[in-house]
Design a protein around this nucleic acid. Structure first.
Lengths: 213, 213
DNA sequence: TAGATTGTTAATCGATTAACAATC
DNA sequence: TAGATTGTTAATCGATTAACAATC
């Protein structure tokens, strides 16, 4: 199979390339050199070429990169050409925001179901998807070929819920709960710890804004 | 002044330490060694000691670290002992989720105001804070000593709004818009690009879950 | 004191940048 | 063909890990 392992540092940069290339494409730009892109994105041209060459090289010497082609290729690498069924667990403001967002930006993530423990929310709809009681989730995941679960629930229940989901065939978790999940090898977890992010901002605010004074 | 520059890699790990130490404290744990903490957090003990020693060393040879003391110290480093006034721009589901969260987890971030372009939302309250029209934001920032702005608005207006905010004295932006802001030196920006995060999950799902088959 | 564990220096590893030959 | 720009190797830089002397 010979699959070189690609570092998460590189993977983490791909969505940003994808975003810029999408914008360029929309602006009608046909080709771009690593040099031009580096000025736009404020990274080195060297890094750009290294990153792309992890996947085999999409450019042409003397010409640069075709924007449209590169955009599509990166999309494919990110798996955006495939469809993934997705459910949201926790129908608070954050859960609803993500549910809405999901159907809106339809990049292959299909918003299929929404669950909450709060009986007052049951039956209410978000983008046409009814909110269901939590005890329906196991059967739903099994029967609807759900790949991804979005977790916007309190940390007290997140670990337990994640376990249930994994046992029923979920393959990836987008975790917004303020806790580290403990899942088996092969299950993907992407954490969005908002409080961590805000604390980082707080540190930098403290440390660097002072210098102005 | 002699302020050693501390790498963002280290800063990025501090909130996670803070979280674990808070949990330990709550569980009544008084002291912990780097070894024990490393097992809990699944990082090397070496890294833990290196990280803490960036700030001068909080432990004691032969004893380890006092949980309560370390927790407080890291909180201080992150600036959580200081208060920061904060406004939310964009009163959609995401903005409301963050506004709610802010008053709930009261770690020195004071939720002061909320703004939106949509007239239908004006006057509506989120955690007791009324949603105001966007054209009130400049005066509000100036008069209420606002440090941090949370941006949950579409990318089409984000760059422009950020500029206005900075011109009126905002020092830090927590940016949820899917665009890179361009702010002057000394203004802190922490990006939460949710779509980037989801694409990363998509990549890993694609790449690694296949291997199971 | 002896044992434990930090603080810190040295070694290793990985990621980024620079340089340039290959080639369109 | 000559010029431009990639793909790729080599050099550098920074971050992580290992080791151990200092010390509680």
């Amino acid at each position: 199979m010979e699959e070189r392992e690609i570092s998460q540092a590189v993977i983490g940069r791909l969505p940003r390339y994808f975003r810029y290339l999408g914008d360029l494409k929309e602006a009608g730009v046909e080709r771009i050199s690593s040099q031009e892109l580096s000025e736009l994105m404020k990274v080195t041209a060297s890094q750009i070429r290294q990153d792309f060459n992890n996947f085999g090289g999409f450019g042409q010497q003397g010409y640069g990169y075709n924007v449209d082609f590169l955009h599509k290729e990166i999309g494919n690498i990110l798996g955006l050409n495939k469809e993934h069924n997705l459910i949201v667990i926790g129908a608070g403001n954050l859960g609803q925001a993500l549910g809405n967002y999901m159907n809106f930006k339809n990049r292959g993530f299909i918003f299929k179901g929404m669950f909450d423990v709060n009986p007052e929310l049951w039956g209410k709809e978000v983008r046409g998807i009814p909110i269901q009681p939590m005890d329906k989730v196991e059967a739903f995941v099994k029967e609807n070929d759900i790949d991804i679960a979005v977790l916007t629930i309190p940390k007290t229940s997140a670990v337990e819920v994640a376990e249930v989901l994994v046992n029923n065939g979920i393959k990836a978790i987008w975790n917004f709960a303020h806790v580290d999940l403990n899942v088996p090898e092969g299950i993907q977890v992407e954490n969005v710890h908002l409080s961590d992010s805000l604390m980082k901002l707080s540190y930098n605010l403290e440390r660097y804004s002072q210098e102005q004074k």
